[in-house]
């Protein structure tokens, strides 16, 4: 579904990605692991068009993504849940979710049905639909951020550290939701600091180290060897 080959990306003159290649097959959960600065977030930003790709190609279902604008990429079916959630603090929960469908010109009934679908997935948000997003807890904001991304009915959902700064109980809830979303047919590309958790729910894992893929394989195999994880992720 998504295939990145030999991708180079840099901030001005400093290269961040040094020829990364990875593949996300349809219907799977693929996770990217790696220490800080390995280039995980940059990879996602390059896919969603927030950062220009230097060299290399990003192909999504046969179409080239490199050089396209973010709105075109959203329209093609890729939704990005950015690091740090980035909800719109001064808008209500409902308004935040509505913005997720900005590019899909839904009819009123479709919009409502789609919103109710998100509220069914995250009942906590339904209780708070009239509340300003900035006044909610981190976990609720994360749920909102995911619900917002799902409004465009993406084929591929990219999550950038959804567990960042959340309590363990909440992390479990979020992770459950991610597997649920995947079961409903959305392909997931997940970045996680919590390697154990990410490997437990994913089908395939890539370990990034200073801008290139150090190791990849089925998550079950990678999870088995603690020494590998310790070497690349610093325990």
């Amino acid at each position: 579904m998504l295939k990145i080959s030999d991708l180079y990306v840099g901030y001005t003159s400093v290269p961040v990605l040094n020829g990364i290649s990875l593949e996300v097959p349809e219907g799977k959960i693929v996770t990217m692991l790696g220490a800080n600065g390995a280039g995980k977030s940059t990879t996602l930003k390059a896919i969603s068009g927030l950062m220009p790709a230097g060299f290399g190609s990003i192909r999504f279902g046969g179409a080239e993504l490199a050089g396209r604008r973010p709105d075109e990429i959203v329209r093609m079916g890729i939704a990005h849940v950015p690091e740090g959630r980035l909800v719109f603090p001064g808008l209500t929960v409902s308004e935040n979710i509505r913005i997720g469908s900005y590019l899909c010109k839904y009819s009123k009934a479709e919009l409502k049905r789609n919103m109710e679908h998100q509220f069914a997935l995250f009942p906590r948000l339904a209780e708070r639909r009239g509340q300003l997003a900035g006044t909610m807890s981190g976990g609720e904001q994360q749920m909102l951020s995911i619900a917002r991304a799902l409004m465009s009915k993406p084929k591929l959902l990219m999550l950038d550290e959804p567990s960042l700064g959340l309590a363990p109980v909440i992390i479990d809830q979020i992770i459950d939701k991610i597997t649920e979303i995947n079961r409903e047919g959305t392909t997931v590309l997940l970045i996680e600091q919590n390697a154990e958790l990410a490997l437990a729910i994913s089908d395939w894992a890539y370990i990034l180290s200073v801008g290139s893929v150090a190791l990849s394989g089925p998550s079950s195999e990678i999870g088995r060897d603690r020494s590998i994880l310790d070497a690349y992720l610093g325990g």
Binding site: L50, P82, V87, F88, L91, E95, I99, G100, Y102, R148
Partner: peptide, 23 residues
């Protein structure tokens, strides 16, 4: 409207608005 919501999104967080597909 949809467009007004997009403008308000741009005010509050440009990156998030961009990720939502707002030009």
């Amino acid at each position: 409207s949809r467009i007004g919501l997009a403008l308000k999104a741009v005010r509050q967080d440009q990156v998030a608005a961009e990720v939502m597909g707002v030009h």
